[in-house]
Simulated scan of single mutants.
Amino acid sequence: MYDWNALWHEREAYRTGYDIRHGDVNELAGALKARLIHSAAGAGQIAVYEDDNRYILAGHDGGLQLLEVMKHGLFDITLRFVSEDEGQGVPLPYVEIHVDNLATEEQAVWRAETRIDDEGRVWVGKRTLDENVLPAMPFDDLSFTDNAEFREELARVWHEDLPQLRPLIEAWFHHGGEIGPADEPAHYGDAERVQQMCDRYAEIVRREQAQLSRMFSDDELRLIAGVIAGIHFDSAASCRGVWLAVEARIIEDELDQQHQIDAEALLSKMKGLSYAQEVALIEALSPLS
Rank of each mutant, 00 (worst) to 15 (best):
W4D: 06
A6Q: 13
L7I: 05
L7T: 00
W8D: 02
W8K: 03
T16P: 02
G17A: 14
Y18S: 01
I20A: 07
R21Y: 13
A31K: 15
L32H: 06
G44V: 09
G44D: 09
G44I: 10
Y49F: 08
E50H: 03
E50L: 04
D51M: 07
D52H: 08
L57V: 14
A58T: 00
A58E: 04
A58W: 03
H60Y: 02
H60N: 12
D61F: 00
G62P: 00
L66R: 08
E68N: 13
F75H: 11
I77A: 03
S83V: 06
D85I: 08
P91N: 12
P93K: 10
P93H: 03
Y94G: 08
H98G: 01
E105G: 01
E106S: 04
Q107H: 13
Q107G: 13
V109A: 01
E113K: 14
I116K: 10
I116T: 11
D117R: 04
G120M: 08
V122N: 00
W123Y: 13
V124H: 12
R127V: 13
T128Y: 07
L129Q: 06
A136T: 10
F139N: 00
E149N: 08
F150W: 01
R151L: 12
E152S: 13
E152P: 02
E153I: 07
E153H: 15
E153M: 13
L154A: 05
A155V: 10
W158K: 02
H159C: 00
L168V: 01
I169V: 11
I169G: 01
A171V: 01
W172I: 06
G177D: 10
G177Q: 08
E184M: 15
E184C: 12
E184H: 10
A186G: 14
H187K: 12
Y188I: 14
R193H: 10
R193S: 03
M197R: 10
M197P: 00
C198F: 11
R200A: 14
A210Q: 15
Q211M: 14
S217N: 09
S217A: 07
D219G: 01
L221C: 07
L221I: 05
L223C: 07
I224V: 12
G230W: 10
H232L: 11
S235F: 12
A236G: 14
A245P: 03
V246S: 02
E247P: 02
I250T: 02
I250R: 07
I251M: 08
D256Y: 01
D256Q: 08
Q257L: 09
H259T: 03
D262P: 03
E264H: 12
L267Q: 02
L267H: 02
S268K: 10
K269N: 06
Q277F: 05
V279D: 03
V279K: 09
A284C: 04
S286Q: 12
P287Y: 14
